[in-house]
Design a protein around this nucleic acid. Structure first.
Lengths: 149, 149
DNA sequence: GTCAATTTACTCGGATAGAGTGTGTCCGAGTGGCGAAGG
DNA sequence: CCTTCGCCACTCGGACACACTCTATCCGAGTAAATTGAC
């Protein structure tokens, strides 16, 4: 199992945008973010669009455009960013293979699949922990952003 | 993010092998497991080999061969199976993009990346929950295995 | 009838093709800033 | 000097190729059981 790198990009970009917004340098263009992190500019933009659709970032078109935080950093959790980039589906998808076999006697599987329940419980713990941390928390722990070069 | 279906297969197969072992029908061949779940036999075998390498299953070659549980069901956690099939690496891999940019002033990033810490904390919660459940637990909650057809 | 060697059929194990998802790049539409011309 | 119009450069947005991982399949090596023959 592997999480796309877009998650790391999204979180760091949200943090940077929040920090730059605080010192009045917003909106922030993808060019600046890409330079800041050494990332492919076009692809980064594509990924940030997903955050816009999810209502985490707000895009500002035009000459001095860029991206702003759509909500206050305290109200953006890591879970929000992960869901926006990776999707809201569960990583474990129960295909109900227990009913596909020849022994799938009627009524044997009325109860929900125990495997699915166990896996979902673990993922819920994961999501709960992600939802506990906000962008603001990470901003507070990160080193301050230097002025524009 | 998406978990491979091999995880579901592996867990269900471990449960079935454990149940059949209990009534003296072991080892269990991949042919029987594939028929039981309606899965491609060859590919299922390939996936179970990963469980053998991880020390979860034991392969018995020969005419009446198949797979056995290498440990007691109480000592096989869902975390073991997931790690065997999906790998032990963390889903979130910190690429340290914060140091790749132009502003990577020396010493600014002496502390570990907060993003990495937060994501790892969430994954640890996930793994903890997976390690809490064993194959034996799921076997107890599942319907009993019918005799060989 | 018993034993042993041989055959046989079944198993696992790893190496080989095909599809789906994620990654990376491109070009077009739209908007705000800037400059020049006119009043 | 101020206002207004037009141009332009910069931005976002979505559509188009490439690479990699996951999925699926095939064939070969090895082993235990079953068979057959001799004793």
């Amino acid at each position: 199992m592997r999480m796309g790198e877009g998650v790391e990009w999204g979180i760091h970009c949200c943090m940077t945008i929040g920090q730059l917004e605080r010192i009045g340098e917003s909106p922030v263009s993808t060019a600046r973010l890409a330079e800041r992190f050494g990332l492919p500019q076009q692809y980064l933009k594509k990924r940030l669009q997903a955050l816009v659709r999810a209502g985490i970032l707000a895009s500002v078109p035009g000459a001095a455009g860029g991206f702003d935080l759509a909500r206050r950093p305290e109200q953006i959790t890591l879970m929000d960013v992960v869901a926006a980039v990776e999707g809201v589906e569960y990583a474990f998808r129960c295909a109900e293979i227990r009913q596909h076999g020849v022994d799938a006697t009627k009524g044997r599987f009325a109860r929900p699949c125990g495997v699915s329940v166990a896996m979902r419980r673990a993922e819920l713990a994961w999501r709960r922990e992600l939802a506990r941390q906000t962008i603001a928390d990470l901003m507070a722990a990160a080193p301050p952003e230097p002025k524009r070069s």
